[in-house]
Amino acid sequence: MFDDLRELYQEVIFDHNRNPRNFRIIEQADRTVEGFNPLCGDRLTLYLTLTGDVITDASFQGSGCAISTASVSLMTDIVKGKTITDAERLFKQFHEMTTGKEEHINLEALGKLAVLAGVREYPARVKCATLAWHTLDAALKNEAQAISTE
């Protein structure tokens, strides 16, 4: 019945929505940043542990739609073990994938995150996918204030 939506709602997204990874609080987090999408009310809190310039742990709390939950779940998985510089590069590639010109997209570099490429076709849903990454960006830049997609 929802054939048109297969690109957007891939099984991986349903899986992460049902069983979000890293859905916990890091009590001694080095960075804690809140992300908010006032358009839909999605809220998340991102926790990062840094060892030098390497992200050694990442987790989140909050509630959102399947796209935003899957996005933050996948993101917290993939950034673990990455340097701040690599994570920032990934943010830019992710942003390019969801909003940029097609020829700039590097799906290979994005790995598992490529399942979220479908949001490109749904402008109303792009922010659902990018909220997690904007929050990560703020956390990496150590901007303490809550960030908003608006």
Binding site: L8, Y9, C40, D42, A66, I67, Y122, A124
Partner: peptide
């Protein structure tokens, strides 16, 4: 366990326009 935005997108694919949000 289903967020209104997912409901909105799913119904839209069936031609149904509803509002999802606050």
């Amino acid at each position: 366990k289903i967020h209104p935005h997912d409901i909105g997108t799913m119904l839209d694919s069936l031609g149904i326009a509803i509002r999802a949000g606050h």
